[in-house]
Computed example of a mutant assay.
Amino acid sequence: MNRIIAVARLQAVGRRDGLLWPLVVLSIAFAVNLFVFGSMGDEIGDRPVTGGLASVYITGLAFGAVAIAQQFPFALGMSVTRREFAAALGLFTLAQTVIYAVLLVVLQAVENATDGWGLRLRFFGLGFLDAYGVPTQLLIYAVPMLLMSLIGITLGTVYVRWHTNGVFGAICVIVVVLGATAGLITRYGRWPAVGEWFQDQSALTLFAGWPSIAVVLLALLSWTALRRATA
């Protein structure tokens, strides 16, 4: 366990940019939204949701992929086993996710207390979150962040295992599967049923429950690819 913690600390040092850049991107998106909606004055309406919060999740995905490609070869060179590397990466990713989730919950509370930063704006909050307690809010913020990180990590493990052809091959498979699914739903006119299914899901199920299943599947897929990777 001590060795896994040591490897996680090594990853934290090597990923300082990965920790900071999502916050930098989030801050820039926030500043831009404040400027744009502040310029609108009374035309802003009643607390619109800007969607800018997605920036931190997308950045987390990107750095998850880069972390594997950069750190896995170095870890092998330092005689770190694949199991130790995977366990340390999981520990680091979980800690990072918790930190971001706590930060977002705090910022949402500040946003509510200041009536949307004095502009009736929703940047960190999503409206429906106000109906839930802090533990539920943490899950709704954290699990999608964990999912995005796992998507990036999975792409990174595919790269170190099968290199560029593997990544493009995986993307092609995803596009084909999503396209075929959308085509079948359209062919049989099931889009209203799909919409009803989403409406019947609670926020906790939709943002934390189903994504948790995807997180587990991606973690297993990543480990399967990583255990045979040679960097």
Rank of each mutant, 00 (worst) to 15 (best):
M1P: 06
A6C: 07
A12F: 12
A12E: 03
A12T: 12
R16M: 15
R16W: 14
D17G: 15
G18P: 07
P22R: 03
P22W: 03
V25E: 00
V25M: 14
I28M: 11
A31T: 05
V32Y: 01
N33D: 09
F35Y: 00
V36A: 03
D42M: 11
R47A: 14
R47S: 08
P48L: 03
L53H: 10
Y57M: 08
T59I: 07
L61C: 13
A62P: 05
V66M: 14
P73W: 04
P73D: 13
P73T: 08
F74N: 10
A75G: 05
A75M: 02
S79T: 13
E84C: 08
E84M: 10
F85C: 05
G90L: 01
G90Y: 09
Q96W: 08
A101K: 01
V102R: 05
L103T: 04
L103A: 11
L104A: 03
V110M: 12
D115K: 00
G118I: 14
G127L: 02
Y132N: 05
V134A: 03
I140D: 00
Y141E: 01
V143E: 14
M145S: 12
L147Q: 08
L147D: 10
G152L: 05
G152I: 03
T157E: 06
T157M: 02
V158D: 08
Y159D: 07
W162Y: 07
H163C: 12
H163D: 15
H163W: 12
V167R: 09
G169H: 11
G169Y: 09
A170N: 00
C172N: 15
V175C: 08
V176S: 07
L178R: 04
A180E: 13
T181H: 15
L184R: 06
L184C: 09
W191P: 02
W191S: 02
P192V: 14
G195A: 11
W197I: 00
D200P: 12
S202D: 04
L204V: 05
T205D: 13
A208K: 03
V216M: 09
L217K: 05
S222E: 06
L226K: 10
